[in-house]
Design a protein around this nucleic acid. Structure first.
Length: 792
DNA sequence: TGCCCCTAGC
């Protein structure tokens, strides 16, 4: 009865055997069986003759069918299983193992339930529980349940069962439980030791792993290889190497582990030397080691070695492996040998997406974005890496508009979800373009889709919000981050200081130290920069000293630059000049430039002249220094000297960088250049400027004409001043933007005294918040005052 | 009939 359905599918074969079946005939037949047809012949015969009722025969046919997954699918095997009248433990185990092998652990567990239901005729044995334990990997709860059954049924003394339990807990990251099973084991074999060791290795718990390894009664190659890899991952190269040298029997994997340790630790030369030594000793190479060593070549940009490895793998015939082929293309394109990359790429069948992606990133790295796009367009199937290579390629080439356009194209097509690399590229492009709306959209997308904001992505978001003047949003990102790296803190500290919240910035610096994150040299650039904004001379000195003495960080030229600027702005010009003289390295243009700025601010025209002339000598084509020096002369009315500077500027072909401000209004970015008359709404803007002037003059504005360095009369000076790009942008913002939205402006140069004074008064007279980011710092203008407290 | 099995990547 039970066999009716199965016979149907096998009925065409019923007359093959006339003789009665026995095990020896079945065995002979199975030995030759190579297709489903042949299999069905014997199976139908077994059913018809009733030989299938023989438990041993049934187990043989089921074992055979589960082993031949190439022509018998598991569903069919299950049908056979269901037709076996008195399946024993062995038959259950075989079926359960098959489900496990095709990754259907749930079916394995269901079969166990069936087994328990039929407990009168069949019992789980020591072979059943390892299978069940493996089937419950992925759910600790299920694993514990199975563990309970093991104890209840009395199988917990079996070494196989215990070892599988150790492995299960270790894989699930439950090392306490793994360790408990291990410690309580009456018998421990090599597998027990290796399993518990593998758990610690996977967790990266190097001390625990080391302890287990040292206690092992006999050290096997696999355990030693794992330890080498673990030491490497933790950056403990010396220990990895010592272990490697001390190993009595090294195999190919030991060499590979050591080489990839070096490769991943950035010690590319050591990796290559080790590979050469391996070859010299005549140890054969495999795919894994070749890929590792090619990666070392790519990362260290040593094309020649890479090419000689190419020669070697060509000889051994491994170059035809797809993975090696791809690694070669990657190596050539990364080393900017795009011609050889192309040659290999064109010689392949183009079926592998990885080689296409390598070509895209190769062209991107060489700056051939057009070619990268061509390859991209020709690709039959694109994955997230293809988009990532193209998008980050454009971002790295400074093509920010294109970066965002590509991202929009990708989102529009809707097939690929962006990964973290893409998001980081797009967010930094938004930062550079001051495209806050677009950036905020990306952030909203991340939140909406519940994407993980890891340290890098979070830091990029903080950086964006801070550089676009949205302090609260930046802080929100920071507090929601799970893992805060030193760069996350740096972005926060730097951003707060940049936005005029220096006190908070310094508080965060203390908080950072309290939370155990070790500050690095960038942290101190941020901290000293904060002190500089507020003119906190004593505090600046204190942090500068603690950097050297407490944190053992050698000050670099940027730290000195900050200190010079801090002292100079505070009017301590002599002290600043002395600090420059005490620097262990040659002061750079920025350092002298800071001093020159300070001279201008404090009207120290004698020192200013000296420093200015020195700077012009150091960098004759820099526009800013000429302008600064010229301003120093202009402010004391030395028009002859001003004219002289203008002469040198013409002689040195210095072109004054025009001031340029951008403002994003209603999703569109508008650009204004000083003296601009090109904007389509320029007449309205000019009318608005008149309105502004009238209103602010009533509350005490008078143009600060000292800023204009040319010898022209005061009325004309005033007109020139009113063509400054930020004023045009402010007027435009007042015209078109909703009063509830702050007017955000990005300027390429520093904001001038006059524009600063005007912006303060506008914020009061028009009751509007204005945010101007200049080259150095943010100015949040609210109700007549500015967050920079007049330090900029 | 079984448990552990290390090394690589756009």
């Amino acid at each position: 009865m039970k066999s009716a359905k199965l016979i149907q599918s096998t009925s065409t074969y019923k007359s093959v055997y006339k003789t009665t079946l026995n095990q020896s005939i079945v065995d002979t037949f199975l030995l030759q069986c190579q297709s489903l047809n042949e299999f069905n012949q014997i199976l139908s015969q077994m059913i018809v003759t009733g030989f299938i009722k023989d438990t041993y025969a049934a187990s043989r046919i089921l074992t055979f069918s589960t082993a031949k997954s190439s022509f018998i699918n598991l569903h069919y095997s299950r049908q056979i299983f269901d037709h076996i009248e008195n399946p024993n433990g062995f038959i259950y185990n075989t079926m359960m193992r098959s489900y496990l092998q095709i990754n259907h652990p749930k079916e394995t567990l269901l079969l166990y339930k069936l087994m328990l239901k039929n407990m009168k005729t069949v019992y789980p044995d020591t072979y059943t529980y390892p299978l069940l334990i493996q089937a419950s990997i992925g759910s600790v709860l299920e694993g514990k349940e199975v563990h309970d059954h093991v104890v209840k049924m009395g199988f917990d003394s079996d070494v196989y069962v215990r070892n599988t339990l150790i492995n299960m807990y270790a894989v699930c990251g439950e090392m306490m439980d793994a360790r408990k099973v291990f410690d309580e084991s009456p018998v421990r074999d090599l597998v027990s030791w290796n399993s518990v060791l593998a758990g610690y290795v996977q967790m990266g718990s190097v001390e625990e792993a080391k302890m287990v390894y040292d206690q092992m009664p006999e050290k096997n190659v696999i355990a030693s290889n794992s330890m080498i890899a673990l030491f490497g991952r933790c950056g403990r190269m010396n220990e990895a190497y010592r272990l490697f040298v001390d190993m009595k029997e090294k195999d190919l994997v030991s060499w590979t582990a050591m080489i990839s340790c070096y490769e991943q630790g950035g010690m590319y030369e050591d990796a290559l030397v080790m590979f050469i030594e391996m070859n010299r000793r005549g140890i054969s190479v495999d795919e894994v080691v070749v890929i590792s060593v090619l990666s070392a070549c790519a990362r260290s940009l040593v094309l020649e070695t890479g090419a000689s490895i190419h020669g070697l793998v060509f000889k051994t015939g491994t170059s035809s492996y797809v993975n090696i082929h791809n690694a070669l293309i990657h190596m050539y394109s990364t080393c900017a040998d795009i011609a050889d990359a192309e040659k290999l790429f064109n010689s392949s069948s183009h079926t592998d997406i990885i080689s296409w992606n390598s070509m895209i990133s190769g062209y991107s790295k060489c700056g051939s974005l057009k070619k990268a796009r061509e390859v991209f367009d020709k690709m039959p199937v694109k994955d997230v890496v293809s988009w990532s290579a193209l998008i980050s390629g454009h971002s790295q080439a400074g093509m920010f508009d294109e970066t965002i356009a590509l991202f929009q194209e990708m989102m529009l097509r809707g097939q690929i979800k962006p990964d973290e690399t893409i998001l980081v590229s797009v967010i930094s492009a938004c930062t550079r373009l001051a495209a806050l709306e677009q950036g905020t959209w990306v952030h909203a997308y991340i939140k909406k889709n519940g994407l993980e904001v890891n340290s890098v992505l979070g830091t990029t978001l903080i950086d964006m919000y801070m550089k676009l003047g949205c302090v609260e949003s930046a802080e929100e990102v920071f507090y929601k981050m799970d893992e805060k790296g030193v760069s996350s803190w740096n972005s926060l500290i730097l951003g707060l200081a940049m936005n005029g919240e220096v006190e908070k910035s310094l508080e965060m610096f203390s908080e950072m130290k309290r939370s155990g994150v070790v500050p690095n040299e960038i942290t101190f650039v941020a901290v000293l920069g904060g002190c500089r904004h507020m003119g906190l001379v004593d505090e600046g000195h204190h942090h500068f000293d603690s950097m050297i003495n407490t944190h053992k960080i050698e000050p670099n030229i940027k730290h000195y630059g900050c200190m010079v600027d801090l002292l100079g702005r505070a009017g301590l010009l002599k002290e600043a000049e002395e600090l420059i003289a005490s620097m262990p390295m040659a002061p750079d243009v920025a350092t002298w430039g800071a001093l020159l700025g300070a001279c201008k601010k404090h009207g120290a025209s004698e020192m200013g002249e000296r420093v200015g002339l020195k700077l012009i000598e150091l960098q004759p084509n820099h526009d800013g220094f000429h302008v600064l020096l010229s301003n120093i002369y202009a402010s004391k009315g030395s028009w002859e000297n001003v004219a002289e500077i203008r002469g040198t500027m013409i002689e040195n072909r210095v072109v004054k960088t025009p001031g340029c401000s951008i403002i994003e209004a209603n999703g569109i970015v508008h650009e204004f250049v000083a003296g601009d008359t090109g904007h389509p709404r320029i007449h309205e803007i000019e009318e608005m400027l008149d309105v502004i002037t009238e209103r602010v003059k009533m509350i005490g504005y008078s143009p600060d004409t000292n800023e204009v360095c040319f010898d022209i009369d005061d009325e004309e000076k005033e007109t020139t001043l009113f063509r400054h790009s930020e004023k045009l942008a402010i007027a435009f913002g007042l015209m078109v933007m909703d009063p509830s939205t702050p007017i955000r402006i990005m300027k390429n140069l520093r904001i001038c005294n006059d524009c600063h004074a005007l912006a303060k008064l506008v914020s009061k007279a028009f009751d509007r918040e204005i945010v101007v980011r200049d080259r150095h710092v943010f100015h949040h203008f609210r109700q007549g005052s500015c967050s920079c407290m007049e330090y900029w």
